[in-house]
Every structure is written in structure tokens, then in C-alpha cells.
């Protein structure tokens, strides 16, 4: 479980997050929505133990999130993460050496699933291939927490579709807690259980995806738009 307790993060005078309290239950899939600069990435970096709150606490699996939490958290960052000079195979070996929970068996299945070429260098790969490689590296870990920061950024609809199918195929539902930040809601919506809207560093709204349709006849996208009217 992941919990933010009255978390504020200040970068100089700018507040990236303002008194945010949120709980993410074990085994569920959450979507974090909101415009650029709403605090989504800051929140993810905090849950990954890479950024610390100015006020409040971030608790991951019962302990305050710090560098050591990387053991329990597989984090897909929107920037960096893969090295241009390395091949797919070398990236896998690098990740396997860094993380005890990395499953080479799962990585093999994912190479097939994501149609990646083992000996291709990252530098020679398209954005879509790099996006798929990043997901492979994260999904190969049997970590209790998966944090995916903008996994669809700059990818075309076909690749987004493959990524959604990859998530459904390889996530251990009920065991792994997954938080996904995204602008591209359409493909991922049927996979999410709950969605949260962040806006200017604050929680603007929160919903259960199926209940939203059942009770209000709205998709998450429509709900998101309604919250900005």
C-alpha cells in the first residue's frame, strides 16, 4: 500500500504539491490524470523514493519512502531510463543485475510480446520501440509496486494498444499495486479501477471507473472534461 499524508513539495517558491493526502490499496490499478505541471510526476518520484516531501509523509509498504524503497518499486520514468549505447539484451542484463526481483523468464516472454529485437541498440530504436523496452524492463520485475510515469507519451495508438495489452498480460492483478500517470486516457481507461485528477498540486477529484459509468453514465475522459468546465 502507498500512502501520502498531507504531502507538500516546494521547489523554491513554487508548490508542486499542496497538502495532498491519498491512499493506494494493494493490488489495484490507479490512473493519475491532470495537465502538465499538476504535480503528477513529482508524486510518482516521491512514491519511488527519489524526491522527498517538504512537509508530510510518503509511506510505501509500511515504511517512509527513501532510496531503499527502489527494492519494492519498479519505476518507469518519462525521461531517461534507457541508455543509447546499449542493446535490448544489455539493458535487460543491466536491470537484472540491479534488481533481485527481475525475472529473466518474464523478460524473454516480453521480448516476444513486444516484438523487440534483442541485439538492436537503443539509439537505433524508434520512440515506440523504446517505449516498449521501458515497459519490458518494468514488467519483468516482480515488484509489489509499479509506477508508470507517462508510459504512452509520444506513442501512436497502435503502440499504446500493445502497451495496454502488455499491462493486462503481465501485471500480477491483486498483488501488484500499479499507478499510471497519463494524458492518453482512452486506451487505458478499461484497465483502471480508480482515477484521480491532480490540478495545481491538489487532488481535484477521484472516482471508481465502473461506478462512474453505472451511476453517472460518464467515461473517465468525459468526467475529466467535466471537472475542467
Amino acid at each position: 500500500m502507498i500512502e501520502l499524508r498531507n504531502v507538500t513539495k516546494e521547489y523554491g517558491k513554487r508548490k508542486a504539491l499542496q497538502d495532498v493526502s491519498l491512499q493506494f490499496e494493494k493490488g489495484k490499478i490507479y490512473g493519475i490524470l491532470g495537465p502538465n505541471g499538476s504535480g503528477k510526476s513529482t508524486m510518482m518520484k516521491m512514491a519511488a523514493g527519489l524526491v522527498f516531501p517538504s512537509k508530510g509523509e510518503v509511506i510505501v509498504n509500511g515504511q517512509p519512502a527513501d532510496r531503499s524503497i527502489a527494492r519494492d518499486v519498479a519505476y518507469l520514468s518519462s525521461e531517461g531510463m534507457v541508455y543509447p549505447g546499449l542493446t535490448v539484451q544489455q539493458m535487460i542484463e543491466f536491470f537484472a543485475a540491479q534488481h533481485k526481483d527481475f525475472s529473466l523468464e518474464k523478460a524473454e516472454e516480453l521480448i516476444q510480446f513486444m516484438s523487440l529485437e534483442r541485439h538492436k541498440k537503443v539509439a537505433k530504436m524508434s520512440k515506440g520501440q523504446q517505449g516498449r523496452l521501458k515497459l519490458l524492463l518494468v514488467l519483468s520485475r516482480k515488484a509489489p509496486v509499479l509506477l508508470l510515469d507517462e508510459p504512452f507519451l509520444g506513442l501512436d495508438p497502435m503502440v499504446r494498444d500493445t502497451i495496454v495489452k502488455g499491462l493486462v498480460s503481465f501485471i500480477d492483478f491483486g498483488e501488484q499495486t500499479v499507478i499510471i500517470t497519463t494524458h492518453e486516457i482512452t486506451e487505458i481507461e478499461p484497465v483502471l479501477e480508480e482515477a484521480v485528477i491532480l490540478d495545481e498540486g491538489m487532488v481535484r477529484a477521484r472516482c471508481h471507473v465502473e461506478a462512474l459509468r453505472e451511476e453517472e453514465g460518464l467515461s473517465v475522459l468525459q468526467w475529466l472534461k467535466r471537472n475542467y468546465q
Partner: peptide
């Protein structure tokens, strides 16, 4: 449940329901 979830691109809990 898992196969159907993959085919439909939805959460397996949804198929369970």
C-alpha cells in the same frame, strides 16, 4: 478470465464480474 481480459484490453476484475 485473463485471456478474455487481454483480448478485450480490460482489467481482469471486470471480466470476473
Amino acid at each position: 478470465v485473463r485471456e478474455m481480459a487481454i483480448q478485450s484490453g480490460v482489467n481482469p476484475n471486470t471480466i470476473q464480474r
